[in-house]
């Protein structure tokens, strides 16, 4: 059997509709995708439906995925997951509810935020916590929930330019936490 941890092997086998490859994909990525889907739909029933829909879509469309274009396999799957989750979760409530959530998080966690945490004393989860909660929220809103810069400006009541800068800063911090490739 091929080594599916080599991403190009995995992609090749997925395109052949190889069941073992899909099983590997599920075992390695379903939890990450499920986590993102859950953030959007916020209940188990819908999250289950969406995850099934996501894998059916991966199956049907994997031939159209082109590694050379610049988007990673994960980004491609994330796009499918995000779109499917947003379809289920009614569009009109998205902004209002995330507005409330953003205010809640940015007020309650602000005081707990500690900037300098040493890398070797704590695990990755704690490191993620070291990203300012507001910036972490912006990452969620933009990358995982798929809000545009404009929509985030509306949610957070910040000017568009500030939103762009903060999302950029958030990404830089995130890259520091997880190192480079």
């Amino acid at each position: 059997m091929k080594d599916f941890s080599i991403i190009s092997n995995l992609i090749f086998a997925l395109k052949q509709k190889d069941e073992a490859a899909f099983s590997f994909l599920y075992d390695h990525y379903s939890a990450a995708l499920y986590g993102i889907v859950f953030k959007i739909v916020n209940n188990e029933n819908d999250a289950n439906d969406v995850l099934q829909d996501v894998f059916v879509n991966i199956w049907k469309n994997i031939e159209t995925y082109n590694e050379d274009k610049g988007g990673s396999l994960f980004t491609w799957m994330l796009n499918i997951a995000r779109n499917k989750a947003i379809d289920i979760y009614r569009q009109k409530n998205r902004i209002a509810e995330n507005q409330k959530e953003f205010q809640r998080v940015s007020i309650s966690n602000e005081s707990l935020y500690v900037h300098s945490i040493k890398v070797n004393t704590i695990g990755v989860n704690k490191l993620v916590d070291s990203i300012k909660p507001e910036l972490k929220q912006l990452i969620d809103l933009h990358y995982y929930k798929g809000f545009t810069h404009q929509e985030i400006a509306e949610i957070t009541n910040m000017p568009l330019g500030t939103v762009k800068t903060k999302i950029r800063t958030a990404m830089t911090q995130l890259k520091n936490v997880f190192g480079t490739s």
Binding site: E19, F22, S23, Y26, S30, A31, A32, L33, Y34, G35, I36, F38, E44, A47, N48, L51, Q52, F55, V56, G71, S72, F74, T75, L78, V124, N125, V128, I139, Y143, Y144, M171, L174, K175, V177, F178, T180, S181
Partner: peptide
């Protein structure tokens, strides 16, 4: 790098789906 960081973040915040779901999906 951006995509790798986001993937790593998503994995660190992963949520395991219910075990029966894999069977349903397959």
């Amino acid at each position: 790098e951006m995509q790798n960081a986001l993937e790593a973040l998503a994995i660190s915040e992963a949520k395991t789906p219910p075990t029966f779901l894999k069977n349903v999906i397959f």
